[in-house]
Amino acid sequence: MGASKAVDYISRMEHGVIIAVGSGKQGKSCSLHSLIDLCWHTRPVYLLDPMEYDVSMFPGYRRVSDPNDIPVGSVAVIEDVNRVFHSRGSGKDATLQRWLGIISHKSTVVCITTQSMAGTDIEFVRSQDAVVMCKRMHDEDLAFERPEFRMNQVLANIWIEESIRQHPELEPRSWCFFPRFNESVAIPKVWWWSYRNSHMLRDVRL
């Protein structure tokens, strides 16, 4: 490693929040899990999700439904975050604020995926060291993005497009833009990622 400032920084994060944002089926989850594999190969990874599904398709991962069950030093992944913490939920329920307030003490990295920051509880970016990872977002979705993030997302779209143009041999969905580091990075896909992983909620009941 050493080629990417963003990946280097994330590898050294003891606690913090990684936010993968972009339109549906642009490879947010794939890139996020690949980034976790790349950066924190040895840390335990927990999927925080109240829905019941088979986690064996994520080798080495465990599923918990309560942030209290996540041990010190872990990586907590929340797929499609507003299913678990609702859009403006921290205004009604303090669980998220209480939890994010102590992730620095518990050395927890919280990784979330979301389709738009407009639908994401803003507590995630307010509390701790948050790194945003942009995937492509459709123009229609961009119109509804929060103004604070819209400009970065416009840049992300431009630079991901440019990266794909410069490297036509790579999978287009491997590109991620990190506004904080001003970097467009192609992240290698983790070996176990498959159609099952990207459609893991296919059989769950609402």
Binding site: S4, K5, E183, V185
Partner: peptide, 9 residues
């Protein structure tokens, strides 16, 4: 400029 980093190849 923005850096474009290919970690895949």
């Amino acid at each position: 400029g923005v850096r474009i980093v290919d970690l895949v190849s």
